[in-house]
């Protein structure tokens, strides 16, 4: 529907719509300022590749030619700057260098590092501190790519899994079920009572990080109690149905845990490997000039 402003801004097409959305500042960091940093990163890659192909590097391209040193310096500077995102995001302040711009640049310049770093190696790799730095850099970038992808896709399923419940409500629901189970289990015999005690006693966050990522909890006491609970008496049937509810509630919590783990796991590699990369880079640079 063409408004006057819309007509002025170029009609009702995709562009003007995007423009309006951009004005509202709800645009993804990937699309920030019309993919500004994507274009800058592509230009950096294109210039690096063109230089690599056109400059005669004697005797063969590697990190030790003048072009190699240039690429290495650019790469080193980029890595240090990219790692400063962790500092920047903790400083909440307004300004031209918005956090969104930083994040956008972080992602695209980080991707450009694949090209810059690889050309810096001159495709010479081996079992040494130099290749260690290169491999760490690639791992950091790979986890970063994973992070961007899960940030773009998983939050939707996280909110779908929540079914309009907050995390606190999920835990409250479980507590409510537990109180009911406690009183419903009063008529049960010893063996069945023990099953209920075990189920109630198990931490809601039981399970390793791997269990969270895979969603597989073979040691779940609630599932065990449900399997061991008879359906003979009315009390047993009631406890069984409450256990079933408890299991469903746990499944929802564990679904949230799984999605959250998938969302967070990359940072547990990305951050420590970034610090390891800076250490390896330091060793790389110093060793190269120590044994020049």
């Amino acid at each position: 529907m063409a408004t006057k402003a819309g007509a002025k801004a170029g009609g009702t097409g995709r562009f003007s719509q995007d423009e309006r959305r951009r004005d509202s500042d709800h645009v993804s960091f990937l699309k920030h300022k019309g993919f500004r940093w994507l274009w800058i990163a592509l230009a950096l890659c294109a210039a690096s590749i063109a230089g690599y192909l056109m400059i005669d590097q004697d005797p063969r391209p590697n990190g030790g030619t003048w072009y190699g040193y240039t690429l290495g310096t650019i790469g080193f500077g980029l890595i240090l700057w990219l790692s400063l995102l962790g500092v920047r995001k903790r400083r909440i302040n307004p300004g031209v260098w918005s956090l969104k711009a930083w994040t956008s640049a972080h992602v695209y310049l980080g991707l450009a590092l694949i090209v810059v770093g690889t050309l810096h190696t001159g495709f010479q790799i081996g079992w040494n501190v130099h290749t260690l730095a290169y491999v760490l850099m690639l791992l950091v970038i790979a986890t970063g790519i994973y992070g961007v992808i899960v940030y773009a896709t998983l939050p939707q399923s996280l909110s779908a899994n929540r079914k309009e419940m907050t995390r606190a409500q999920m835990l409250d629901a479980l507590t409510a079920l537990d109180r009911q189970l406690e009183s419903a289990a009063q008529p049960l015999a010893r063996a069945e009572s023990d099953l209920v005690i075990a189920a109630l006693g198990q931490d809601v966050f039981y399970g390793s990080a791997l269990a969270r990522l895979t969603g597989s909890y073979p040691g779940c006491k609630t599932a065990r109690a449900l399997a061991g609970m008879g359906t003979g008496s009315e009390a047993e049937a009631r406890v069984a149905s409450l256990l079933e509810k408890r299991r469903e509630q746990l499944a929802q919590i564990r679904g949230a845990l799984r999605i959250r783990a998938l969302l967070e796991i990359w940072l547990f590699i990305h951050i420590p490997l970034t610090i390891a990369l800076i250490a390896a880079l330091t060793a790389h640079v110093i060793s190269v000039f120590y044994y020049w």
Partner: peptide
Amino acid sequence: LRGFALASKLPSKRAMSWIFAAAI
């Protein structure tokens, strides 16, 4: 609620960073 974060199940990023960097 902190139990929802993966950090509750993994060694801290800071500790891992120090260990890796120091080893290298």
